Computed example of a mutant assay.
Amino acid sequence: MGGDALIDEAAALYALRPDEFTAARNDRSRALRGDDREMADDVLALRRPAPAAWIVNQLVRHRRDELDGLLALGAELRAAQNELDAPTMARLAKQRRGLVAALARGAGELAEELGSPVRQPVLDEVAQTLNAGMVDASAADAIVSGRLVRSLEAVGLEVDLDGAVAGGPGGPTPTTRSARPSARARRRSGDDGAAEREEQARRERAEREQAAAEAEQRAAEASAALDELEDELTGLTERIAADSARRDELDAELREVEDRLGEHGREQRRLGRERDRAARAAESARDEAAAAREALH
C-alpha cells in the first residue's frame, strides 16, 4: 500500500467522531497487520484530531460549499495584497470577518448535530484555523484535505503546517522498505544440519513475532494514553478559558458595584448636608415661634 492508501485510511478515520477514533484506528491497524505491517504501523501512528481540527474536517465533509466560498475569498484577498490594492483589501477583509464568524457559528451547530458539541474556546480555534486558510494557500490545501490533526494559526502571512495534516499536506511519502536479506540457499538434502537450522530459524522468527506483537500492544496503549492526556489538556484549557471569562465578568461587576458605592457615598454626604441645614432651619423657626409667644404675654 502506498501513500494514497494511507491517505484513504486516514480520511476514513478522520470522518469519525473523536470518541470513536482511537478504537477504530487500533482495530484498523490490527486488521492490516497480517497483510502489510508497515501500513499497519502508519495507521497506528495517526493521532486523534484536536476538537477544533475535527470540526474543520467535518466542515469539509458537510459544509463544503460554504468552506470553498470562504477560501475563494481568501485567494482574492491574497491577490489584492500582492497588487497592493488597498480599497479591495479593505472590502474583502470586512467580508472575511463576517464569513469566518458565520462559518464558525455553523461549525458549532454542526458539532451538535454530529453528537459532539463543543464550547466557545474551541470555536475560537476554528475561526483561527479558517483565517489561516485564507492567509496561506498551503493552509487552505491542508484544510480541504479533511485530515487536520490540530488547529492552524497565521503568524503574519505564514502558517506553520508541521505535523498539522495526517500523512502530510501532499500525502505521505511512502516509507522505503528495507530489503529483506535473501534466504540462504539450502544445503543439499544429504546435509545433516539443515533440519536443525530450519528449526532454529522458526524459533527465532516466532520470538521476533512475539516481540513485535508486544511492541505493537505497547504502542497502541501509549497512543490511547496520549489521546486521553490530550482530552484532559483540551478540557483544562476550556475550563481555564471559562473561568477567565467568569473572572472578567466578576471584575466588571465589582467595578460597577464600586461605582455605585461611590455614588451612594456622594448622595449620602449631600443628604447629610441638607439634613443639617433643615435642622438649623427648624431650630431657628422654633426659636422664632417661642419669641412670638412670649411677646403675646
Rank of each mutant, 00 (worst) to 15 (best):
D4G: 13
A5W: 04
I7W: 07
A10C: 12
A12E: 11
L16V: 03
R17N: 10
D19K: 11
T22D: 12
N26D: 15
E38R: 10
A40C: 04
V43Q: 08
L44Y: 05
L44H: 07
A50M: 09
P51C: 02
A52F: 05
I55C: 09
N57T: 01
R63C: 02
R64H: 10
E66V: 00
D68T: 07
A72V: 04
L77E: 08
L84M: 12
T88R: 15
A90H: 08
R91W: 15
L92P: 03
L92H: 12
A93G: 15
Q95H: 15
R97Y: 15
L99C: 02
V100N: 06
R105S: 06
G108F: 07
L114E: 05
V118A: 04
P121N: 12
L123K: 08
V126Y: 10
L130Q: 03
A132W: 07
G133E: 02
G133P: 00
A140S: 04
A142P: 01
V144T: 05
R147A: 02
R147P: 00
L148F: 14
L148Q: 12
L148C: 05
L148A: 10
R150A: 09
L152I: 01
L161C: 02
A166K: 03
P169S: 02
P172M: 02
P174V: 04
R177Y: 02
P181R: 14
S182Y: 07
G190I: 14
G190E: 13
G190Y: 09
D191S: 05
A195L: 14
R197W: 08
E204Q: 15
R205C: 04
E209I: 06
A212W: 09
A215C: 06
A215G: 07
A220S: 06
A222G: 04
S223D: 09
A224Y: 05
L226G: 06
E228D: 10
L229A: 15
T234W: 13
G235N: 12
L236K: 15
L236F: 09
L236N: 06
E238F: 07
D248A: 15
D251G: 08
R255T: 06
D259T: 13
R269Q: 12
R273F: 04
D276V: 08
A278Q: 14
A278K: 11
R280T: 09
A282D: 01
R286P: 01
E288Y: 03
A290P: 01
A291T: 04
A291M: 07
A292D: 03
E294H: 05
L296Q: 09
